[in-house]
Design a protein around this nucleic acid. Sequence first.
DNA 1: TAAACTTGTACAAACTTTGGACAATTTCCC
DNA 2: GGGAAATTGTCCAAAGTTTGTACAAGTTTA
Lengths: 293, 293
Amino acid sequence: MRNDLGVYTIAEVEDRAGLSSALLRQWERRYGFPRPERSPGGHRLYSETDLEALRHIKQWIAEGVAPAQAVKRYLEGLTQEGPRPPETLSLELEEALLRADTEAAERVLSEAYRLHPMETVVMDVISPCLRRIGDGWHLGRVTTAQEHLSSTYLRGSLQGLLNLMGGSLGPTLVVSTLPGEQHEIGSLITALFLRRAGYTVHYLGPNTPLADLKSFAERTEAKAIVLSAMQPISLETLPHQALRHLAPLVVVGGRAAAGDPRSIERLGAHYLGNDPRELAESLSVALKKAGLW
Amino acid sequence: MRNDLGVYTIAEVEDRAGLSSALLRQWERRYGFPRPERSPGGHRLYSETDLEALRHIKQWIAEGVAPAQAVKRYLEGLTQEGPRPPETLSLELEEALLRADTEAAERVLSEAYRLHPMETVVMDVISPCLRRIGDGWHLGRVTTAQEHLSSTYLRGSLQGLLNLMGGSLGPTLVVSTLPGEQHEIGSLITALFLRRAGYTVHYLGPNTPLADLKSFAERTEAKAIVLSAMQPISLETLPHQALRHLAPLVVVGGRAAAGDPRSIERLGAHYLGNDPRELAESLSVALKKAGLW
DNA sequence: TAAACTTGTACAAACTTTGGACAATTTCCC
DNA sequence: GGGAAATTGTCCAAAGTTTGTACAAGTTTA
C-alpha cells in the first residue's frame, strides 16, 4: 500500500499539506528536507511519505515547536525534551478522538509508533485511552457517538497493525470472543500479542458461534482456541462445559472473569487473566504442558 | 481470458476513456504509451487492456498524480506477467481468505493497490470478493468462521485506508449504519468514497443509536447524516419518520431498500441507491438543492 | 465522396526552477 | 530592558518544463 515513489508535484503538495511552494523550497534549501525526486526536467516529485512527514511537521509547528526543530525532530525521531512518554501521547490521543479529529489521532499514533515499541503503544497508549473513554461513557461524560467513533477508529488502527504483521511459523491458534460479547478490541489486542509472540494466528473477529469455531479449528489444525471475554454476561449465558473439546486447548482471557476464574473452569476452559502479554506467556506454558508444542 | 486484440478506434477510446484523441496521440509520442496495434492502413486499434489502463491512469491523475508519473507508474506496475485485472485479483483474494491465509491476502491487496487506483480496488476487487463470500455462506459452501475471518480482515483493510486518507475541507458528514444492522462494510465503503469526494467524514462504525447520531451531528455541525442499510429487517423495525430531523439532511444507501425506495421515505429520509460512487454524487446534488453547500 | 484518422509541428497556459532579497519575528547576549 | 543576530515566511524575475490542444496536409475507411 505504501508508495514511496515521487509522484506529486509541488502544487499538489501545496494543497494537500497546506504549505506554500515557496516554503517547501526554502525548507529544502535550509534544512535539506524534504528532498523529493526530480522529473527529467528538474521538477520536484514528492512521495506519499514526504507528504505525511510534512503534515506532521506542520502540526508540530502549529503546537509551537520552532520549524527548524520540528524538521529535526522528524528526522531524528526525537522531541526537544526527549521522547514524549506514552502517558502524554495517550491523553493526546483521547483528546483528539473526543474532538472527532481522526487526523490528529493519526498523527499522535504515528508519533507513538516511531518513539515506542508496538507493545508499549498498545498497552500504554491505546489501551488506557480506550479505558478512559469507556469510563467517561459510563459516567455520561462521553457521548455514545464519541465512544463509537473512538473505538471504531482504534479498532481499525489495531487491525491494520494485525494485518501488516505477517504470519509466523509457530503453532496455529484461533482467536475470537465469547458469543454475545460486544467488545471486540480485547480479542484484537490478544491476537496482536499472540502473533507477536510467534504464533500463527487466525483472527475471526467477534462473536463466532462455538460450533463454527470448533470446525474451523479442526480444519486449520489449530492447537488452541483463544477467546476474549470482557462482559460477565457472556459467561453466564453459556451452558456447562460449553467450551470443552472445541480444540485441544481452549483458553479465555479478559476482564469478565477477573474476579472469578472458576466461572471459566465451569465452561471447560482455562482462564489466563486480563493482560494480553501474560496471556501469551501462560499459553506457551499450557501448550507445552499439554504436549502440543 | 484477457482480450488483447485491438478493436477500438481512437474515437471510441476518446468516448470510453474520456481522453481527447489528440492527447492519446501525444501520450503515445511522449511516454511511449499506449502503443496500440494498427490497421493495415495505419489507424490505431486499441485493445480492452489499453482502455482499462487509460482509465486507471486517468483516475490516478484525478487523485493528484502528475500525468507523466501516472503513466510511468502504470508501466512499472506491469511486470513480466502483464497487468492482472481486478477480476483475477479479486478471485485470488477470495481464495487466500478462504484458506485463512491473510498473508497471501495482504500480498494480493498490495499488488492491487500498486496496479490500480483505490476506487477500482475497492469496487472491483474487494466488493465482489465480499459478495461472493457472502453468497457462498448463504449456500453453505463457506463456513461461518471463514466468512467471519474474511469480512473481519477486509473490514480492517478498508478502515486502514479510511484512517490513512486525511480529512478534507468539504461539508461535514456523519456516517453510520441503521440501528440493528449487522453489516458494517457497506457504511465503511460509503465513508471511504465520501471522504474521497472531498467531504469531512466522521465515521462512527455500525449501530449508533439514532438519538446519539442526532446530538453528535449537531455538535459537529454536520450537514448530513449518511446511513447504510444492507438488511431489509433494519428498515422494518423502525417507527414512522424515525430518521426525520436527525440532521439538516438524512440519506440512506445500501442494498436493503434497493427494490423499494418508499420504505426509506416512510422513515423521513432520502434513498440514494446501492452504489457508493453514485451516492457521493447524489449527495452533492441533494446538498446543493437544500442550500447546504 | 465525406468522415475519420494519420503525422509532424506549433503553441499557449499553467507551472516550476533558481538565487537573491526582504520584512517580521524570535532568540541571544550584554 | 535593548540592540545585534539568527530565524522564518514571502516575494520577485527570468528561464525552463509540462501538458493539453490546434492546425495543415495527406491517407484510410466505409
